[in-house]
């Protein structure tokens, strides 16, 4: 009986230990990064269509992370007030909330989302729900095109 309690406590301790251990130390997520050249986010923003379908690597500070599923993060651009979304397939890569404020690199293919007004409305409504923020449907006034990086791999720097 004592042994069973010992095993039980050991398991609980192991699980608890994970909650207090340091969350990050150059966290490698998904596939290893292969490209050596980093594309500036500002270059993509200047001419996004030129990058659609191309495999690139970007870098920047993580300024936002999907708190529900960790399925996207926003990296700060090299130009002020701009950011770029890095999206991953749910469950394949999970960006931790502790990544916020850390430098990161992500590699993947730039994708273009052409949304009708209804789709844009659903998209922003979903984003607001993820962030548990209120959403004003009046802010969506027409169709929109969104560019983002569909990432296969990322590194969050310590």
């Amino acid at each position: 009986m004592k042994k069973l309690w010992f095993i039980g406590f050991s398991l609980a301790f192991t699980l608890l230990a994970g909650t207090v251990m340091p969350a990050l130390a150059d966290l490698q997520l998904g596939q290893p990064l292969t490209l050596t050249e980093i594309t500036k986010v500002s270059d993509i923003e200047k001419n996004p269509t030129a990058y659609v379908g191309k495999k690139i690597q970007i870098s920047g500070t993580v300024v936002e992370v999907c708190s529900s599923r960790g399925c996207w993060m926003n990296l700060a651009s090299d130009t002020p007030f701009e950011k770029f979304q890095v999206k991953v397939t749910d469950g394949v890569i999970i960006f931790p909330m502790s990544a916020r404020g850390h430098a990161a690199r992500a590699e993947g293919v730039v994708e273009e989302l052409k949304l009708s007004q209804k789709e844009a409305l659903d998209y922003y409504q979903h984003k607001a729900a993820e962030k548990r923020e209120s959403f004003d449907p009046q802010t969506v006034t027409g169709p929109e095109t969104i560019y983002r990086l569909r990432a296969m791999g990322a590194v969050i720097k310590d």
Binding site: T61, V63, A76, F81, K83, H102
Partner: peptide, 8 residues
Amino acid sequence: KNTFQPDP
């Protein structure tokens, strides 16, 4: 760790 300005 870092700072960021999403807008001015």
